[in-house]
Structures are given as C-alpha cells and as structure tokens.
Simulated assay, not measured.
Amino acid sequence: MRLFVAVLPPVEAVEHLEEFLEPRREHGDFRWSPPDQAHVTLAFLPDVAEHLLDELGERLATAASRRRPLVARIAGGGAFPDVARGRLLHAGLDLGGEAGDDEELDRTATGARHAAVAAGTEVDGARFRPHVTLARLRRPADLTRWVRVLDTYAGPSWPLDELALVASYLGEGPRRRARHEVLATFPLGGREGRRAQSRPRP
C-alpha cells in the first residue's frame, strides 16, 4: 500500500486558502492539487505490506502520544527545488504558538518516520520541510511572482492536535489523480496506546 503520515488542515483553513487562490489562478502549465487533498506530509511510505498495518498504527499512536499539540496556520509560500526553476508551488506552515514549536513539529515528523521504520516498512523522502502542495508544473519555471503573492497570505489558525495515516491510490488515465483515504488518526499528547479513530476523507 502507498501510505503517508500527515497533518490535515481543517476544512475551514482549506476553504480560506482556496478563496485566496481562485481569482489568482492561471492555466498554463500548472496542475493544481485538489483542495480536498490538502495536507502536510510528515513521512511518505511508498510500499507498506498490509500485514504491517496494525503494528504501524500502534507505533504511530505511541509516537504521537509523546508529542504536544500545536497551533498552526497556512501562510506564505515557496517552490521546490528552488524559486528560479520551480517544479512545485507550495504554501507554508506557520506555527505561531510557544517558543520551540518548529522544533516540536520536526520531532513529530521524526517520530512518525522512526515509527514506520520500527514497524518494518520503508520511509522515502528527503529532509522534512513542512508545506502544503498547491500545484505542479510540467516544465521548470520561474515562480518568483507566485511566491511573492503567497507571501502576502496568512490563513486562520487551527489546532494541530493529531496525525493521520492516509492511503493514496493512484488513479487511471492521463491525469492519474490520486484518491486519498484516511485510515486512522492519532492524537498528539494523548495516552499511549489510545486506539486510533478511522474517519473518511472526501
């Protein structure tokens, strides 16, 4: 199974971002990400055997219980691999709470990755850089203007108080839009071993 561990912004935060982006969107080479799939990836697990799911869930629940909730908002933006030759446009994640919140989110991502490895599955991806993917480009382009626009944006704050384990099913056809399904959620700062609550994701 193709899975990832993520932070899922609430519907209100995603809708606020969409209201900001909609009048500014250009067609061109942009392939915009569906709003209902907005997320911040903490750990990408490209190929998880189904028999590992129970242990993975238990280890993620334990890892989440060791971290504290945060307050976050979607704000600012950037591009990967860089602004001058961007292939991916993204919004940023701002943690405006207590001192050390950025480090706490880094530790949360590290804990999720360690939990996956301990459960016996592979973790893919480079250094954790919190972001919400907005659009991808077929060819590299200078995204300076778009990043400047995004730098004027700051969405509403929301409690970052749980992690989600999400399955990603690749679609068919030329667009190959993935379908996401939330398998379970894990509260931050909760009691160790608390059972995850599954919930649907549109």
Rank of each mutant, 00 (worst) to 15 (best):
R191P: 00
S168G: 01
R148V: 06
H27F: 08
S65F: 12
A116T: 04
E181P: 01
R24W: 05
P202G: 04
S33Y: 02
L170V: 04
P140I: 01
G76S: 11
T110W: 15
R177K: 06
G171F: 01
A115Q: 11
F20G: 02
A13K: 04
S33A: 15
L60K: 12
G173F: 03
W146P: 07
G28T: 09
L8G: 00
V83W: 12
L137C: 08
H180S: 03
F4L: 01
R138W: 03
A6V: 02
L21Y: 06
A43Q: 03
T133D: 06
P202Q: 08
R31P: 12
L3C: 05
G28Y: 05
P35L: 08
P187V: 02
D102V: 15
P174A: 08
L53E: 15
S157F: 04
R67E: 15
G97C: 13
L70S: 13
D54K: 14
A126S: 15
T108V: 15
A61K: 06
W146G: 07
G155W: 03
R175M: 03
P46D: 10
P34Y: 06
P35A: 08
G77D: 11
A126P: 14
G189S: 05
L160I: 02
G86M: 09
L165D: 00
G97V: 10
R127M: 12
S157L: 04
L89M: 13
W146C: 04
P23H: 05
R138C: 10
V48M: 10
L165A: 02
L137Y: 06
S157K: 07
Y169M: 04
L56H: 07
R201Q: 05
V14I: 12
L150D: 03
D101R: 14
E192G: 00
T62N: 12
V123Q: 08
D36N: 07
A64H: 11
R59S: 07
R127P: 13
L42S: 09
A72M: 12
R25W: 07
T108K: 12
T110C: 12
S198Y: 08
G76D: 12
T121Y: 07
G28I: 08
L160K: 01
L163S: 00
